[in-house]
Nucleic acid binder design. Structure first.
Lengths: 148, 148
DNA sequence: CCAAAATGGTTGCATGATGAAACCGTCCTG
DNA sequence: CAGGACGGTTTCATCATGCAACCATTTTGG
């Protein structure tokens, strides 16, 4: 059986997971944010199998998260770069990173700092219209179409 | 071969993905945030196979994202509830939802609003020390241990 | 200029994960 | 008391993954 598709769930979260919700995709994107662009570099830094990496890069290109551009002068060297859509995943990856650091401890050897000030970045918070932080208990899920 | 584990990658993002990075886990958490607590309800609302749901719920309980509490008076009825760690994934799920709405269009029939004011919530932004919004190009990844 | 290595893959195989359906013991309900 | 709800477990066919080997082209070192 093929993996169940999430497109039909009428849920933006499911739709997002359909594009970047597998074990490797977000790590590839995160690695790209660190500056990695070449196939071999992704492979070595992540320790991912070549066929899987190939599959993931193709899927990320297909869904518009990354683009494949010629790097060599004559043809078979390429670079994989983030598109705007891919770079916009920065928020998602930062949210994941901060959550993991809060609950699993800091297993990372990297620290994100503002490039100009050198200060660490703020914790992400869901905020209301007035800027007040909101937890999941503070929000309501309004139905806009038909009831469940 | 067993799935490659991400624990050894010395990366908080990888560590997070190890806990909630598969196709179903985040959807189960999102469904729990909508108020779902019973096994059958998760199964029907998500359309997930029972054995997979069972496996995911157990893993989420093991990693401290959800808890399993007796609901029936005499024993074999249970409720699965989010822990504080699980509720804290609200930021991650909101980031994913907003990203998907920005780039894939709004496929959702839900709208998140502040429970008290009724206003929609703000877009999440990574911010610097001073509150200025930062893109991935505005940050630096400082190494705190040994070089790569 | 030639040999060797790098690059970006593809293929085959063994094993693990997934989805669908059937089955099962306990509990509640009419 | 019978039937259904609940929360699973088991079986099986198929798909995904990890690993290693292989390959055509391109670049690089001597």
């Amino acid at each position: 059986m093929t993996r169940k598709r999430f497109d039909d769930l009428d849920c933006s979260v499911a739709c997002a997971l359909d594009q970047v919700g597998d074990w490797w995709s977000l790590l590839v994107v995160k690695e790209a944010m660190l500056g990695t662009r070449r196939f071999v570099d992704f492979q070595q830094r992540l320790g991912i199998a070549k066929n899987i990496l190939c599959n993931r890069l193709n899927r990320l290109v297909d869904s518009g998260v990354m683009s494949k551009v010629d790097a060599g002068e004559h043809g078979t060297r390429y670079e994989y770069r983030l598109t705007d859509k891919g770079r916009d995943l920065f928020t998602v990856i930062t949210a994941l990173r901060q959550w993991s650091e809060r609950w699993n401890g800091n297993r990372d050897d990297l620290r994100l700092v503002d490039r100009v000030s050198g200060h660490p970045i703020r914790q992400l918070h869901v905020e209301g219209d007035d800027g007040q932080p909101l937890t999941v208990r503070d929000v309501r899920f309004e139905e806009t179409k038909v009831g469940r």
